[in-house]
Design a binder for these strands. Structure first.
Lengths: 232, 232
DNA sequence: GGGAAACGCGAGTGACTGCTCGTGTTTGCC
DNA sequence: GGCAAACACGAGCAGTCACTCGCGTTTCCC
């Protein structure tokens, strides 16, 4: 195993004041994008550990040496890729889990969140492979954990709008269940296409709504199949 | 990569009339059990691909050569392990998904199935690592697919007891959702212990019951929070 | 134009892998 | 006891992997 001593060389676009600003040329930025796209393809079809850096370089049409001109090691490729994906997700869908104004139906909030995240994952299948792959190394796992924690707290806040009288621990557990269920459904959804895919998305929404509805209605004898309201 | 030509040597306990019956001594059987236990431990903590045969042999306290006296290759170790686990599961919990007699509450059926499978997976954490690991090779994936298909059809039959008027395609999709949700919850459950674990199990049961209840009750206006009955 | 730095190459390096093989020991059966 | 087969060993083989290095090419800036 190669040594894991810290390397001063920073890859990617951030010209942070590390040690060597390493002015990138336009050609270099193009190569980086190329390599990242190739890595996404290879990671997606083979998983992180099974993807060899030589294969990524070959997919990008460059030599292994060129790859290492831009990334200090294999992990850095996945990290940069994950960073960019998380950044795009935060930017494009950040508001999907924002607390809703009082009175918004639960169905609406669930549908909006599910639709946006499903859409993102369908357009970036690497994301699922990178974040939920079991063979990812430490740094990416950290990144995944951080993202998971962020999403979790977002979902908690969102849920708190609908179940204001529930203890925080229970809300947290409910949020965790929602995220896990979403992840499971995502795997199934990504495994189907067209009408079947949409049917599973529909099923996921129903599942979440049915799971959450009783938690938002303090009275057990409330009528079912009717729009609910939880704001006093 | 070493050649994958078929090897006549059969490992494990089955003295099937293949090519060489290879009479095992008691010592050999003990070694096999030892090696399988070591493999379970290593697979569990490192995953299949990251687990090296040398590490398995070391964990078992034998030399690499001894390991290959009983298993033709690394894959065979995982296959034998998976076979034994599946066999034990089928034997011990096979009836967990048997069709219930009419009138059995859905809650009861769900709770029984969930409890048994959760229990099994808690006692054999390797099972989850082997079956749901993303880096498993072809043969084990086949085994997993076969088991998944078996469970799926069992769940379909079970669900058909509760939703007799639903098209088969919808029942199948519902069963698929149930299994995926179970798998997702299993991951969470295995990640916690004690009271928290039980709370998540409780949550999983509630989730499944709430998801399935509306499907079993054709009338949308039926009262909620009350035991239901779907048999005419 | 000229020089420095970024870019690009690809054979090569060392570590590790799954697996083999020659040799020696233990076991079961007569 | 004796013998064949099963068992056990561990150095070593072939292969792959992540990664390096020396050298040639292109680009930018003056």
């Amino acid at each position: 195993m190669p040594d894991n001593t810290e390397k001063p060389v920073r890859s990617g676009t951030d010209t942070a004041a590390g040690e060597r600003p390493r002015r990138r040329q336009a050609r270099g930025e193009r190569r980086i994008a190329q390599l990242l796209a190739a890595a996404a393809s290879v990671f997606c079809s083979a998983g992180y550990t099974a993807a060899s850096t030589n294969a990524i370089a070959r997919e990008a049409g460059v030599s292994p040496g060129t790859l290492y001109q831009f990334f200090p090691n294999k992990e850095a490729i996945a990290i940069e890729l994950g960073d960019r994906l998380v950044h795009e997700m935060r930017e494009t869908y950040g508001e999907a889990l924002a607390p809703v104004e009082p009175g918004t139906p639960l169905e609406e909030a669930v549908a909006a969140a599910v639709d946006r995240f499903i859409d993102f994952n369908c357009r970036h299948p690497v994301f699922f492979a990178l974040m939920h792959g079991p063979d990812i190394p430490g740094r990416i796992a950290e990144e995944h954990d951080a993202l998971h924690a962020t999403l979790l707290s977002r979902v908690e806040v969102l849920l708190a709008c609908f179940m204001p009288d529930t203890p925080a621990a229970d809300v947290s557990r409910t949020a965790q269940v929602c995220l896990s269920v979403y992840k499971a459904a995502l795997e199934v959804v990504l495994g189907h296409e067209g009408a079947e895919r949409e049917a599973y998305v529909r099923e996921l929404k129903d599942l979440l709504v049915r799971y959450l509805t009783p938690l938002t209605a303090p009275r057990a004898g409330a009528p079912a199949g009717v729009p609910w309201r939880n704001t006093p």
